[in-house]
Amino acid sequence: MTRPADTVPDTGFRRCGCCGRQRPAGEVAELGVTPGVYICAGCALWAARRAGLLSALREIRIRDLLPSFLNRAQAPHTATAAIPILPSSDLDRTAAFYARAGFTDADHHDGYLLLNNDGVELHFAHHDTVTPGTCFVHVADATKMWKQLRERGVDGVGEIADQDYGLREFVLTDPDGNRVRIGSAIPDGQ
């Protein structure tokens, strides 16, 4: 028996009308022309790729527009970046591992390590007992970086895969078990 919509209890979740998965209400959008039908971000990106809309958006260089937008939109003391601090049981071993992945030692002192790769920073703090952490690094071309790491024989490089939310990703797992997810937009036509 189906109850009228006005008597259905609100669980805070909505079913995506495309993939059928239950999502929190804040992670779906109601289709304006079809009230009561929702779509998740992953399916919206899939639909945009199929319609060719993402290729048009990619032509706009968001990176070029961002500084002027931030200068207008930011109040003093507004955060501009977040950098997780990952644990390391041996900072020298961590620096050597990430050097093979293209990161340079930007600052290394007692109990702390800062690595850099073309403006991307990874921070590590020494801990005798490590509970592995996770972070995400956006790159221009995940496939290219994945191939380079494989060719260099870097340990801990996982398989690369396209995600339903529009990114191509792989995981780089360091000797302490930290998982650095590396990804980029899926190229058009793939």
Score class of each variant (00 low, 15 high):
111 G>I: 15
166 G>S: 09
94 T>Q: 03
138 H>Q: 13
69 F>H: 10
119 G>M: 14
118 D>A: 15
32 G>K: 12
36 G>C: 13
100 R>F: 04
127 H>M: 08
183 G>N: 01
81 A>E: 12
159 E>D: 15
176 D>T: 06
45 L>N: 11
80 T>Y: 02
50 R>M: 11
46 W>D: 09
170 F>A: 11
152 R>T: 03
154 V>K: 01
92 D>M: 03
13 F>N: 10
146 W>V: 07
147 K>F: 06
129 T>F: 04
171 V>L: 11
106 A>R: 11
130 V>P: 00
174 D>A: 15
161 A>K: 10
99 A>D: 08
97 F>Y: 15
42 G>C: 02
184 S>N: 12
88 S>W: 00
118 D>K: 11
63 R>F: 02
63 R>S: 12
182 I>M: 00
165 Y>V: 03
29 A>W: 10
39 I>M: 15
111 G>R: 10
123 H>Y: 09
104 T>S: 15
150 R>H: 10
105 D>Q: 11
93 R>L: 05
19 C>N: 03
80 T>H: 05
67 P>W: 03
1 M>K: 12
128 D>G: 10
46 W>K: 08
141 D>E: 13
3 R>P: 00
17 G>Y: 02
77 H>W: 05
173 T>H: 04
32 G>Q: 10
184 S>R: 06
31 L>P: 03
116 N>K: 10
87 P>F: 00
29 A>C: 05
44 A>E: 05
103 F>S: 02
72 R>L: 14
159 E>H: 07
101 A>D: 00
158 G>R: 00
148 Q>N: 12
78 T>C: 14
42 G>M: 02
53 L>F: 12
103 F>V: 01
6 D>S: 13
79 A>M: 01
69 F>G: 06
118 D>E: 13
89 S>Y: 05
15 R>E: 08
114 L>I: 04
174 D>H: 05
131 T>G: 02
129 T>C: 09
160 I>D: 01
76 P>G: 01
77 H>Q: 10
65 L>H: 09
111 G>N: 10
177 G>Y: 01
177 G>L: 05
118 D>F: 11
40 C>T: 06
135 C>Q: 06
34 T>F: 04
145 M>F: 04
62 I>E: 13
148 Q>V: 08
41 A>H: 10
100 R>W: 05
77 H>F: 11
170 F>G: 01
58 R>C: 13
127 H>L: 11
145 M>W: 15
9 P>N: 04
85 I>S: 13
50 R>G: 14
126 H>C: 07
159 E>Q: 10
184 S>H: 10
114 L>M: 12
113 L>S: 11
180 V>E: 00
34 T>Y: 03
116 N>M: 10
89 S>N: 12
